[in-house]
Amino acid sequence: MFYTLFINVGSLFLMMLPGYILIRKNILSAGALKDFSQVIVKVFYPCLIFSSMTRNYSLEQVMDSWQLPVAAFFILFIGYLIGLIYNGFFSKGDIEHKKSMLYQFTINNYSFLPLAIIAKLYDEQHMAALILSTLGSEITVWTLGMAILNKREKGFNFKNLKHLLSAPLMSIYFSLIVMIVFSQFHTSIGALIEKYSTIKYINSTIYDLGQATIPLSLIMTGGRMGKIKFGDLKSKDIWIVTLFRMVIIPFAAVLMIKMLFPDHPYQNVMLIVCVMPNAIASLVLGELYGGDQNLLSGTVLISHIVSLGMIPLWLMFLI
């Protein structure tokens, strides 16, 4: 069982390798990597969201799955509480270091990596369930996460709510609107595809664009890791955050999910999100909001390396 899971997770990390090599060999520039990320986030990922949600969910099913975004919020919130306790008793250093520690305790890789793992292990319905759960994660990032990073500006700032209008979230909102319309007219996208060839071809194009999300996002992740310097890994706090992120926080989050949602049909999706490493996006946000770049980059790199073994180990017992 462990070997099968390790091979599945390991194959995803192999997909990161081209991006890592392209950056390390200076074939791809940091600027190109940023543009690459923009295309994924603003084109391919929204297409995946729309196609997955409209193909696999009705409005009634979405309403019945409110637990998914709620669970995603609580998974991140548990990391936040544990980070507060750790910072209160043990963390030393300046404000940039402390807020970076707390952010890395709180926010994990809740979208692209679990999406790739779920695509390997399950069907498209499980992918759609993860996408729906990211609504709770995104709200947490742009409220609680920004309150952490904006400590010099006295916490949360309402201007950060503009990120709740990002392309992926707008795609979720639009998908929900389409489901509402379908519900009112007692139809579905499948019925429209059978009736109208134009809708069939448009839907097929959106679906094909969405399928590029996983390989391209993994290549982008590998590229971002290629920018990290191994010499920045000396700080013991990097290893402490990794220990909490990959062992202690998942343990607490798993217990909570099993207690709050014991019989949910997509509990396995929630559990996979629980055991993810640090978010790649923390590198970008750290640059924007004055985080400790050595800590942020170090924890992203080490937690992803450790996750190659820890994710299969966790999943062997959980799913």
Results as ranks from 00 to 15, higher is better:
2 F>M: 12
6 F>I: 11
8 N>L: 12
11 S>C: 15
11 S>M: 14
15 M>Q: 10
20 Y>N: 02
20 Y>A: 01
22 L>K: 05
22 L>N: 06
29 S>P: 06
32 A>C: 12
33 L>M: 14
35 D>C: 13
35 D>F: 09
38 Q>K: 06
49 I>S: 00
61 Q>R: 07
62 V>L: 09
62 V>K: 05
64 D>V: 02
68 L>W: 00
70 V>L: 09
70 V>M: 10
78 I>G: 05
84 L>C: 07
87 N>S: 06
89 F>Y: 09
90 F>Q: 08
92 K>T: 15
92 K>W: 15
92 K>L: 14
92 K>H: 09
98 K>I: 09
99 K>A: 04
102 L>T: 08
103 Y>N: 01
103 Y>I: 09
107 I>V: 15
110 Y>C: 15
112 F>Y: 14
113 L>A: 06
116 A>I: 09
124 E>F: 08
128 A>K: 02
129 A>P: 04
130 L>A: 04
131 I>A: 00
133 S>T: 05
133 S>N: 07
136 G>N: 04
137 S>H: 11
142 W>R: 00
144 L>F: 10
145 G>D: 01
148 I>A: 00
151 K>D: 07
155 G>N: 07
157 N>H: 06
161 L>D: 03
166 S>P: 04
173 Y>W: 02
175 S>D: 00
176 L>G: 01
178 V>P: 00
180 I>V: 08
183 S>R: 08
193 I>P: 00
195 K>F: 09
200 K>Y: 10
201 Y>G: 01
202 I>L: 09
205 T>R: 06
205 T>G: 12
206 I>L: 12
208 D>H: 03
210 G>P: 02
210 G>K: 04
214 I>Q: 00
215 P>R: 01
217 S>D: 04
217 S>L: 05
219 I>Y: 12
228 I>Q: 01
231 G>A: 09
232 D>T: 10
235 S>K: 15
242 T>I: 15
246 M>C: 15
247 V>C: 14
248 I>C: 08
249 I>Q: 02
254 V>I: 14
262 P>T: 15
262 P>G: 13
266 Y>T: 06
268 N>C: 10
268 N>A: 13
269 V>Q: 10
270 M>Y: 14
271 L>F: 13
277 P>Y: 12
283 L>T: 12
283 L>W: 06
285 L>Y: 14
287 E>M: 08
289 Y>Q: 01
290 G>V: 13
294 N>G: 08
298 G>H: 10
299 T>S: 15
304 H>W: 07
305 I>P: 10
305 I>M: 15
306 V>E: 06
308 L>T: 13
310 M>E: 02
312 P>L: 00
314 W>V: 06
318 L>M: 12
319 I>Y: 05
